[in-house]
């Protein structure tokens, strides 16, 4: 069954039609990626699903419930979580406090502490910098923090918007490894990337977004071999 189903989604900025009626789905246990060039509408799609941008038309169904009209903050306790584009960690709070913010919907204080410990083991660099102000972390560390923070709510569906943006190749590999880890632990993943090669290689299925429309879709490995995709997104 589809955990997330987007049907005929339309989003406008004023009179500009940014998303022109796209449909896609993410099944439980999958990694699905949405690839596309800069300005294709990937972030708009991700933000409108979480209620950060109003939806013009269409339906978003999560776990069998239509969530268009549900205030975004309630989606977190329903099991959705998003690592936003640009990481957006709380710059003035410490690493530790950021992780605590990620557990805002969690009630069990002891469990929160354990989860933070778990994340600090998974990301040793965060562990070493627990009391450092997040704004002073490097880009890679902030990305790790944003991912750790998003996992603090124990999501069923983790959505990531360009987690590899602006990172060195080594860090990009690390980020993708972490996504694979979380997936192995049972998290369903919706991934938005410009790094199409990396994204497709870990995805079960993928969609290509072009100026607000989905133009190609299929299995990750099939898209890696698709001539159109190769030319436009893999630089081959």
């Amino acid at each position: 069954m589809a955990l997330l189903e987007v049907k005929n989604l339309q989003v406008n900025y004023g009179v500009i039609r940014a998303i022109k009626g796209i449909s896609f789905e993410v099944n439980e246990g999958e990694i699905v990626s949405l690839i596309g060039a800069n300005g294709a509408g990937k972030t708009t799609t991700m933000q409108s699903i979480m209620g950060l941008i109003p939806i013009k038309d269409g339906t978003v169904t999560y776990d069998g419930k239509v969530i268009n009209k549900i205030p975004g903050h309630k989606l977190i306790s329903m099991g959705m979580s998003q690592v936003p584009e640009g990481r957006r960690v709380f710059q003035e709070l410490t690493v530790y406090e950021n992780l605590v913010m990620g557990a805002y919907t969690q009630k069990d204080k002891k469990k929160i502490k354990e989860d933070i410990e778990e994340i600090c083991t998974r990301f040793p660099r965060l562990g070493e910098r627990k009391n450092q102000i997040a704004g002073t972390l490097s880009g890679g560390e902030q990305q790790m923090l944003a991912m750790g923070r998003a996992m603090m709510s124990h999501p069923k569906l983790l959505m990531l918007d360009e987690p590899s943006m602006g990172l060195s190749p080594l860090l990009v590999d690390q980020v993708f490894d972490i996504i694979k880890d979380y997936h192995k632990m049972g998290t369903t993943v919706l991934l938005v990337e410009q790094n199409a090669k990396k994204a497709l290689s870990i995805s079960d299925r993928a969609y290509v977004l072009e100026t607000g429309d989905i133009t190609i879709s299929g299995k990750g490995e099939d898209l890696l071999n698709n001539e159109q995709v190769k030319k436009a997104y893999l630089g081959e």
Binding site: M50, L52, L93, E97, M101, T105
Partner: peptide, 24 residues
């Protein structure tokens, strides 16, 4: 307090605060 920390989060970034589950 939890509410106090939420205030700091909202003052810094409403969107990110909402993504934490905070009712802005």
């Amino acid at each position: 307090t939890r509410t106090g920390r939420a205030m700091v989060a909202v003052s810094e970034d409403k969107g990110a605060a909402m993504l934490m589950g905070i009712n802005v």
